[in-house]
Each structure stands twice: as structure tokens, then as C-alpha cells.
Amino acid sequence: MAAGAIQRRTGLTGRRFGLLLRKELTSLEGLFPVLLGVTLLWELFLVTRRPTWGPGAVAGLSLIPLGLIPFWAMWAGFQSVRAEWNGDHAQLLLTLPVPFWQVQGVKLLAIWLQAALTSLLVAGAAWLLARELLQELRVSGLWDVIWPSLPAASLLWGVLLVQLSIVAQFASAVWRTVPRLGGLVALWATVLAGWLGGRLSGLLGYLFQWVPDLRLLGVSVQGQGAQAVFVRYPILIDSGPLVGGLLFALGLFWVGALLLERAADV
């Protein structure tokens, strides 16, 4: 009677969310410290090379760690499921009175926050290393190309990372759900998801044609020698398929969580 009188809340409350997010952010399974460490070391290395290599070269090279982030996002997405299962922690997470998509969602959120932090770090380093060039860039007009493109480019970057991490998490979920040949099935599921995603995001795109297009600026050089000028031209990116692709990823995320909650045996 007394046991029945207790109000037992389900789902994430503020405190539960905080606890889960903290766990994910401090988790070492996704190797975030490695990504962060490599990035920091690289940028510091470039700081020491700056006098010899010059600010231009160093600023360009400072962007290299950005290339690591998509791969890391996939690895972290994959580990977000695999590590829990390998360490017997699945029993802990799956007996929580919380729908599993919420648990999985917090995991992705942590990955996105970490990826965003690293991206900002790289951007900050690039800016610091290139700051003397800024005046030059302004004068040349190149800055007027970079600056207005930044919001749209960041958005594209974010969409890419979100999709990659979700696909990886989904693949890992499939792996855990299929009792035999899970790896192979997961591989095929990923390929299939990619193909299907391409198709569906196009189709879904028609529904979202009303979403304003993304505007980036491209640049070309006209003229030669001293007369050379930068000519800006707009690059328009259709947001329809982009939104479609995001929706598809959302569906994939949901299916992955459902598989783990309702089908995968622990």
C-alpha cells in the first residue's frame, strides 16, 4: 500500500538529464580527450612554427583538425552503444524508468557539444594565428566572402556531424540487436541507410521547398597581375533535401533506440 502510494515519475527530469549528460561528457569511451589533445597539440605546434612558416601557411594548416571531427563523431556515435553493452552497463541504462530514446539522445547531445567545442577551438586557433592577415584579407575583399558564408557553412557542418553520429549510433544499435553476424548486418544496414537516406531526403526535400535556401559566397579571380580582382558569386544550397536528410536521420535515431529498448536482449 505504502509502496503503491509513491508517485513514480518516468522519463527525464532536470536532475536526471543533468546526471546523464555529465556521465556522457566525462566518459572516456568516445576518446574525446584524444581528439581534444591532438587538436590542442597541433595548434600549439603551429604556434611554434609560425615565425618560420609564416602566418599564412600556419593559419591554413591550423584547419586540419577539422578533418578529424567527422571521423571522431562516427566513432563516438558507434561507441555510445558498444561501450555500454561491452561493459555490462546496458543493464543499468535499460532498467531506468526512462524511454531509451532519451538516453540515446543525451549521448548524441554530448557528442555534438564536444564536436562543437573542438570546431570552435580550431576556428579560434585559426583566427589567432592569422590575425595579422586580417587587414590584408579585408583589403583584398576575401574577408567579405568568408564572413557572410560563415553561418551557412557552420550549419552545413553541423548537419554533417549530426547525421554521421546518428548513422554510427544506429549501426551500433543494429549490431547489438542482431544475435548473429551483427557486424555484417550492421554494415549492410549502414549502407542501406545511406542509400535510403539519399533517396528519401530528396523526396522529403520537395515538402520543404519553402525553407529558404542557404547562401554561401564563392570567389573567383579575374584579371591578372596587378589588375587581379576577386569576384564574388553566390552559391545557393537547396535546404529542402537538407531538412529531409535531417528528418531521415531523426527517424534512424528513433529506430535505433527502439531496437535497443524493445528487441536487443541483454
Partner: peptide, 14 residues
């Protein structure tokens, strides 16, 4: 799950 307290055979904690 909010009404069941399950003691697993394995160690689920980090």
C-alpha cells in the same frame, strides 16, 4: 521499470 528493483548478476556500474 519504475516499480521493479532488479539486482543483476553482473556488475552494471561504471
Amino acid at each position: 521499470k519504475a516499480r521493479v528493483a532488479y539486482l543483476p548478476e553482473v556488475d552494471p556500474y561504471y
